[in-house]
Design a binder for these strands. Structure first.
Lengths: 225, 225
DNA sequence: GCGCCTCTTGACGGTTTCTTAACGCATGAC
DNA sequence: GTCATGCGTTAAGAAACCGTCAAGAGGCGC
């Protein structure tokens, strides 16, 4: 069953949305502020989030940013503001769609359907990795080495994920750069050098002689478990 | 390079979009009507389509429907109409996103980035080769000989690939040089001598008496498995 | 505002890969 | 036999690439 989290500080709107969504067969949970929303996302693991930008505590964009650190959960943004900058900012932070209040219920439902349809298995995280020297849990973004936790930055996780989604496979430099930094970065290979070095320092037993994060000079990198 | 197809019947808008998208590093093609658009999609295989709903020949929704029969190509819809029904219909037919004219360029660019991010990458390579003495996996760029891995350089892989696309067939020297080193290198046959020698040394059981990488003197080389 | 963390950017040295040249061998023409 | 041409082999210098370090910019939380 598809779960939808509705985040808005107007109880009336939340109620209207809940009724309509439930009538279409969705399971609906709700939150009235940003912190609660983040908690619900972590605990209830909804399939889609409908998020109002104007919340009492956190800015909606911040909520998107936090969520995007760890997941690709589809987010549909609601906003009363007509200003286009908001849309841009929210979309750039990783929102999937944007609806301006007031909106028709049909439109919102269509966008929810589109978001649910998009939620493909390919957006799922790579399998957790367990080697002799470290473990990686991509869903939780937790890494351990010799039993103790290792801190990885968001970019390091993104890069690792791009490599670990196909363990043992060569991933071309341009593809890594596009997936982690975005289109237009395909030639900035120095990013890869810096971040691979960082990952090796944190994960490899001998960073100077890598065993897991391997280089194919002139081609790309591969993650071997 | 990420290819974007812009479909709109207003040349001025197409031009503006093309300039902006190209400035962001995208490759842009365009069509002014629905039939041409479908043709472009089939032939140019763009990565994202930006599609105006109001086209002279076909309805934009019909274009979406046709495309969705065969692919999941991300489609961003443009429309001058403010009517919400259009949005609903387009999204339900499988459009990924919807922008109402007039729109800010920043907003559209953000939506394009979001669509590109969602798209799954893929590419084509010759079939893997398996002989009595070695195996070649072109997608992974992994070669093994007698069970143990063999390291090949990027140029060696490119040359092997040019030969292995048509196993058993003679490939003229000029063609190999053009495909691997680029146009203008058609006469630099010494490259072939050097690199074929390298490949034989790494792959052939008796490099002096080649069995897989064969020479047709004065003409070219062929790869026989 | 302040400190912390992350990302970006530049510089340097070591390594791999590419390019180029030289030489030996075979073949065929004269 | 001698020469010319094309191919195979090797090695050395040039260029490109990679790993590493560190300084500076920017964002975020407090």
């Amino acid at each position: 069953m598809t779960k939808i989290l509705v985040v808005d500080d107007e109880p009336a709107l939340v109620r209207t949305l809940s009724i309509n969504l439930r009538a279409r067969g969705y399971e609906v949970t709700h939150a009235f502020d940003g912190r609660t929303a983040l908690q619900c996302i972590a605990e209830d693991t909804p399939d889609v989030v409908v998020l109002d930008l104007g919340l009492p505590d956190l800015d909606g964009v911040q909520v998107i940013r936090r969520v995007r650190r760890t997941s690709e959960l589809p987010i549909i943004v609601l906003s009363a503001r007509h200003d286009s900058d908001d849309k841009v900012e929210a979309l750039d932070e990783g929102a999937d769609d944007y609806v301006t209040k007031p909106f028709g219920m049909d439109e919102l439902l269509a966008r929810v359907r589109a978001a649910v349809r998009r939620r493909t298995p390919s957006s799922a995280h790579p399998e957790p990795v367990r080697t002799d020297h470290f473990t990686l849990d991509f869903a939780e973004r937790v890494a351990t080495r010799d039993g103790s936790p290792v801190k990885l930055t968001p970019t390091e996780w993104n890069l690792l994920e791009a490599l670990a989604i196909r363990p043992g496979h060569l991933v071309p430099q341009a593809e890594l750069l596009r997936e982690v930094w975005g289109p237009g970065y395909e030639k900035d290979t120095h990013y890869l050098r810096v971040y691979v070095a960082g990952l090796r320092r944190k994960l490899e037993p001998e960073p100077g002689r890598p065993r897991y994060l391997l280089t194919d000079p002139g081609q790309g990198y591969r993650f071997s478990c």
